[in-house]
Design a protein around this nucleic acid. Structure first.
Lengths: 194, 194, 194, 194
DNA sequence: CATGAATGAGAGTTCATTCAT
DNA sequence: GATGAATGAACTCTCATTCAT
């Protein structure tokens, strides 16, 4: 594939991303994407063969960019508590703008591909987050910042709560206060009180 | 509406329910339902005007029946811990058969109606569950079974974890052990250790 | 299928027949037939699912009608020579109007389905013609009208010549005289000269 | 046109030939040929402007090569019977591998161009074969090998039978025995029995 | 009430053909 | 000459929805 092709491919994915955010996953047809990209009907098929493929590529692109963002924010001499707090703050931000995010479409995709679910992007995303949190918790325990808990279970617990908050934020039912309170519970469950 | 009509309406909803469980929400067309019910194409329109309407009615039906189920299981002289345990056990059962449940289609529906979301059936379901748990926790606190926590926040926390577990169960990533461990964490967060 | 449906089905087949005669086999799209029938795009799909199916049905229809025609013409006390002559005359007539016939499309179909040829309508047509001729020749031999030849081989020989003439008539190269001369050869090959 | 161009042209035709043998005539698109040749989409248009043109050129190429082949096999002091036998043997060989031959596509082409049929390649092929056979039969008659028949009619008769056998070989209905028997009939129709 | 044939809008897809590079 | 991305016309096929019976 030529340089130009790569550019166009990326352009299509970025445009499609906006469409998915606006219309969700199933609501998007090839035609929608063609129109949004202002290319020809047949042109799109040179790059992708159906919405599924496009959607998964968009998701992949999203994931790659997200990883970059992650590593930037963590300072060098941060404590486990600091990092955890930072992480939860990030999550809070994301929760608050959740509806304007690709996440909705991603969940829609997830729920409509329940039967034959080969592409566990959400699962692997979940797992890698768990892994990171687990290490963080272990670190906190070593440092004496956190209570001696089962770090894997604790990490998962955090992720489940976050997952639950995401779902709830879609029903319109999560206020900022609620999020804060839940975050508090998560922190308190770990941190040793003096 | 005649008695006969009521019966037929119910028959359609019950048949449609099975179709939704099998094919999800968006994957179901009027044609699918017509064929499953073995009625005429036009006939279906005498009762419902689109899949959305049918789906919401199915959901309503489901909710009504679910309430009945709930009240049955709770014994009279049960402690708060007992009831909580019972509740979580129920939830665990449901989690394990989540994929064969209408819930998947319900979530799919939810995620494809994110923008204009008037019918917050899931939200109200969530809230009523929170209410019940809240009362239960208050009861437990009064009894001295539970620590003196913010019962609303605690109730929500439980529900968020459960939501998170549901989502994860769709990606195929939740083992029975994981569920048990999370349930343990939820219980331990409340129960006073001696 | 209701009576009305049967009528419409027949109407479509008859209309399609004309289209196939005019445009051949591969040149005909569903759209062509829809337009010729003056029905809706989707309407055609209620009866047939692709041009292949329609074409084969048209062919079947044709065959059924052709059989009727056959039996009518043969008189009761005709000699084998008479019948053979009658048969060849019929074939001659058909040859002369061959281009205005479904046969062209049928051959086109045949040649584009060479690989996976399950529907041997032409083969079975050929074979039944051979069978009839064979009996006729046997009869002629018994009567002393025909020479004692291998009747099966002779019958096939006749059919091969006719087949060859059909093909040639499509290239525009068969005059009536040529046909007559070939028919003569066929007759002479059988009839005992005194 | 440069030498290089001539080479490329020939390369395309030879590659296209294989494609036509494999997929028939109508089943072949410009795209198919482009892909088989591994050249660019636009590149093909520098040499040919549609499949029809390519197909006819392939046919022409085939015809030129076929002529060469013909003249080689005939020995110098062969009798008419020998030559006829040789000819029919060749035809038999061809019949047996008919399906793997360009002939099928050629017939398909013929039948889809019935209406406006200017390029009678098959007709002229037929006629030149008739001419040769006619001379051969005349020779045989002079030699006293063959009976005094209408040599033109006899030649055509042979060709019609061969055509018929070709068609039948497509329906899968011609065994080697059948071919042999028909060849016998053709020979016997000419040769004087003593 | 119920039927199911009929309609037509619209999604998907393929390819001949062009044209800037 | 050669490339291959881009276009757009042409088709296929599916359903929601209507309506005469």
């Amino acid at each position: 594939m030529s340089e130009k092709s790569v550019q166009k491919r990326k352009y299509i994915l970025e445009t499609a991303r906006k469409v998915f955010i606006q219309k969700g996953y199933k609501g998007v047809s090839m035609k929608d994407i063609v129109e949004a990209c202002e290319i020809s009907r047949g042109g799109l098929y040179l790059y992708f063969s159906d919405t599924d493929e496009i959607f998964l590529e968009v998701l992949k692109m999203e994931a790659e960019e997200a990883d970059d963002v992650f590593s930037v924010h963590v300072g060098k001499d941060a404590t486990a508590v600091d990092i955890l707090f930072l992480f939860l703050s990030e999550q809070k931000k994301e929760l608050l703008r959740f509806k304007e995010t690709l996440a909705v479409a991603a969940y829609e995709y997830l729920f409509s591909h329940t039967v034959a679910n080969k592409d566990n992007f959400l699962r692997s995303q979940f797992h890698s987050a768990v892994k990171i949190l687990e290490k963080l918790i272990d670190l906190g325990i070593e440092n004496g910042e956190f209570a001696a808990v089962d770090s894997n279970a604790a990490a998962k617990n955090i992720m489940y709560v976050l997952e639950g908050l995401k779902i709830s934020s879609l029903t319109g039912g999560v206020s900022e206060e609620t999020i804060d309170r839940e975050m508090m519970i998560l922190m308190q469950g770990l941190i040793i009180e003096e």
